[in-house]
Nucleic acid binder design. Structure first.
Lengths: 253, 253
DNA sequence: TAGTGGTCTAGACCACGGG
DNA sequence: CCGTGGTCTAGACCACTAT
């Protein structure tokens, strides 16, 4: 009764491979250890390299492996918890919010961003780029869109672009009263520039966190942050130290 | 200067294909429309089917396409915003929290769950399975782990399993005073059972939301929710109606 | 039964990283 | 330079869905 599925269906090879490899990773390998190369592994399991790669891709997606061209495949450490929701109700750039200003310029935003900011499609906004590190590794990049109206007192005290400019814009932002904020998380694939900064290939899976900041009845700033999906676990509470998950098919009945 | 990259690197075919297809989707197709089959598309673009598939996979990951075996590839509607963080500080099962109880039994949880609940590894806990719908489609499944200590007054009023039992357990939970909660989001791949319920293939990318509920100084319940990554955008604020994102490489400089 | 996407193979060549 | 993972090909067969 219930879901008594005898599964006459033959399990795909890559799926079974993934299970086997997962168990091997749990028992016979330690973090940082490098695996045999793909050609050897494929031969050892008696499958084509493409099939072996399908299994490795999934394991990398799940954060169990790390593959680097020209180097090899290594066992990844557990995902690092990255706090996203702690500094509730604080402007980006407040105190030290784990982000590091990288650059800033003034340009017309993508149409979707312009819509969210309720600015004209061609009206230039301040675009701050920031990056976030964890354990010495880059884990996220961010584009912060700030309409000129949100930083009215910004003067030409600094260069029109560069990190100094970024800091100046963020400093001005603090003068506004933050009335609320709004977050969304979705899966995306890394653009070429983000990928380069995250030390990944273009198209790598990323978690995209979109945050809207409200002030004076408007959307005063919009942040689009791109986190490496393979290495990050986004935490929204107070304790970024949990580690649930990672159990292959642990459910029978 | 800065990042003046002339890119002597030849762009991978599948990446270029993805760009072309994205533009085609934006301009020439409407939601729900079915694309030519993979063999025809591959021929039309002069690439092998495997290469074409690599592009389609990415587009599906980004929620632009929906592929179904035996049917075809269709243009997906924009991702649906799914509220995850609104009902702050409420027990699962309170009022109507968008989740529908499916089943419940009492079994020893996976070790990682047992650790988070601070129960013995072999101590059975109530395991409630719930599912969540949106626009008539299943978007998430959940496993709720509730230690027996959290529902001390639970009697044998109902069957030891089944939806009725699930509701009884959730009802008992409300009697506790919720002291706080804790959330994390990470990328995962669908287990076979979850995949079946979400109408996806095993291994499909999913967003795993882990929530800990605190009461009486302990972790009184633990929820592991699995959302379809292709169709869902998880929202944590009050307005699930934003739509940022979706712009191919809209950054030159 | 016909047509779709999903899996798999056995090759080939390329881009990158490190000696 | 060599060895690694990344890309690509041209096939084959299978599982599923609709008719």
């Amino acid at each position: 009764m219930g879901t008594t599925q005898l599964e006459t269906v033959p399990e795909p090879k890559y799926w079974h491979l993934k299970t086997v490899l997962t168990e091997a990773l749990d028992s016979e390998f330690s973090v940082g250890e490098i695996l045999p190369n793909e050609r050897d592994l494929a031969a050892r399991f008696g499958v084509a390299r493409a099939t072996l790669r399908q299994a490795l891709e999934q394991l990398e997606l799940e954060g169990r492996l790390q593959r680097r061209r020209g180097v090899g495949t290594t066992v990844a450490p557990p995902r690092v918890g990255v706090a996203v929701g702690t500094e509730q109700h604080a402007w980006p750039g407040a105190a030290s919010d784990a982000w590091q200003p990288v650059d800033c310029d003034q340009a017309a935003p993508p149409t979707a961003v312009a819509k969210a900011l309720e600015t004209g499609a061609d009206e230039p906004v301040h675009t701050v780029r920031r990056s976030r590190m964890s354990h010495g590794q880059p884990v996220a990049t961010e584009q912060l869109y700030i309409p000129a109206a949100s930083v009215p007192d910004l003067t030409a005290i600094d260069a029109p672009s560069g990190p100094a400019r970024a800091r100046a814009v963020l400093r001005e932002l603090q003068h506004l009263t933050l009335e609320g904020q709004d977050r969304a998380v979705e899966l995306g694939s890394a653009r070429a520039d983000d990928a380069k900064e995250l030390d990944r290939l273009p198209g790598s899976p990323v978690l995209v966190v979109t945050t809207r900041f409200f002030a004076a009845g408007r959307t005063a700033a919009l942040s689009v942050a791109t986190y490496r999906a393979d290495t990050c676990r986004l935490t929204f509470g107070d304790s970024p130290d949990v580690e649930i998950h990672h159990d292959p098919e642990q459910r029978a009945s």
